[in-house]
C-alpha cells in the first residue's frame, strides 16, 4: 500500500478530524461540556443501579472509579466507530469528485475522537482520586492506551466503513451491534465474573485489553495476562485484515457511494 501517498495527503486527514471535532459540538448548547457530562452521568446511573443495587464486583476498587475507566474507553470507541462507518457515505461530494487516499476518511473520524478520549481519561483519573484510589505509579502509562485505541477503533472502522459503501445495511446493524458489544465488553462488570470458557471467549473482543490496561494504569488492578494477549492479537489481526479489505474494495467507492 502506498504510505507515501497517505503522508502526502496527511493534511486532508487532519482537516477531516478537525472538522469532525468542530461539527460535533457546533450548534449544541453545552458544547464541549458534553465530553464531560456524558461519562459522568452514565457513571452515576451505573454505580447506583449495578454497583450499589445489584452489587456487581469491581476488582477491589470503588465501583464508580471502576465503571468510569470502562466508560472512558467505551464512549469514545463507539463514537469513533459510528463516525468512521459513515465517513465515506456521508461525503459523496468528496468521494465522487476529488481524489485523496480514501483511508483518510475513517482515519480522520477516529482521529477526531482522540480529544474526547484524552478528556475522558483525565476525568477517570480525577474521579478515581476522589473515590479514594491512591495515585498509581503506573498512571503515566495510560498514554499507551491512545495508540491502542487507534488500532482497536480501526479494527472495526476499516471493515465497517468499506462495507457500508457496498451495503447500506451496515448502518442499521451498527447501533444494534454496538449495543451487543457493550454488554460483551467488561465496561460495567469485570471479565472475571464469567466462568472459564466464557471468559476466554469474551477475551477475543479487542476492547477487553484496552479497558483492562486503562484500569491497570489508573486503578492498579491486575489484568489477566492471557486475556490481554488474546485481545491484543485479535485487534491487530482485525485491523490488518480490515486494511487489506479496505484497499481491495476502495477502487469501487467512487462508483458506489
Amino acid at each position: 500500500m502506498d504510505v507515501r501517498d497517505l503522508w502526502a495527503y496527511r493534511d486532508v486527514g487532519v482537516i477531516l478530524a478537525e472538522r469532525d471535532l468542530r461539527v460535533r459540538y457546533r450548534q449544541t448548547l453545552l458544547g464541549v461540556l458534553w465530553v464531560v457530562i456524558q461519562p459522568l452521568v452514565a457513571m452515576v446511573v451505573f454505580t447506583l443501579v449495578l454497583g450499589e443495587g445489584v452489587g456487581v464486583p469491581s476488582e477491589g476498587v470503588p465501583y464508580a472509579a471502576f465503571v468510569l475507566c470502562g466508560l472512558a474507553i467505551w464512549m469514545p470507541f463507539s463514537s469513533a466507530v459510528g463516525r468512521a462507518t459513515s465517513s465515506l457515505v456521508d461525503t459523496p461530494e468528496l468521494v465522487t469528485k476529488v481524489y485523496f487516499p480514501r483511508l483518510l476518511a475513517p482515519l480522520g473520524a477516529v482521529g477526531g475522537v482522540l480529544a474526547d478520549l484524552v478528556v475522558a481519561l483525565a476525568i477517570a483519573q480525577i474521579v478515581a482520586l476522589i473515590a479514594g484510589v491512591p495515585l498509581q505509579a503506573t498512571a503515566p502509562l495510560v498514554v499507551l492506551v491512545i495508540p491502542g485505541f487507534v488500532v482497536v477503533a480501526l479494527a472495526f472502522s476499516l471493515w465497517l466503513s468499506a462495507l457500508n459503501v457496498l451495503y447500506r445495511d451496515v448502518a442499521y446493524a451498527l447501533t444494534f451491534g454496538l449495543q451487543l458489544l457493550f454488554f460483551a465488553s467488561p465496561v460495567v462488570y469485570p471479565l472475571g465474573v464469567l466462568d472459564g470458557t466464557l471468559e476466554t471467549l469474551a477475551a477475543i473482543n479487542p476492547v477487553v485489553g484496552l479497558i483492562d490496561v486503562t484500569r491497570w494504569a489508573l486503578l492498579g488492578t491486575t489484568p489477566d495476562a492471557w486475556n490481554l494477549v488474546v485481545s491484543g492479537a485479535m485487534a491487530v489481526l482485525l485491523a490488518a485484515g480490515g486494511l487489506v479489505f479496505f484497499r481491495r474494495v476502495e477502487r469501487q467507492f467512487a462508483d458506489r457511494v
Binding site: D11, V12, R19, E93, L94
Partner: peptide, 18 residues
C-alpha cells in the same frame, strides 16, 4: 468536491490539502 458541513473558509483549506 466540497464538504457541506464545513464553512467556505474551511473548504478552501480542505481543497488545498487535497
Amino acid at each position: 468536491g466540497f464538504h457541506h458541513e464545513l464553512s467556505g473558509r474551511e473548504n478552501v483549506y480542505l481543497s488545498g490539502a487535497i
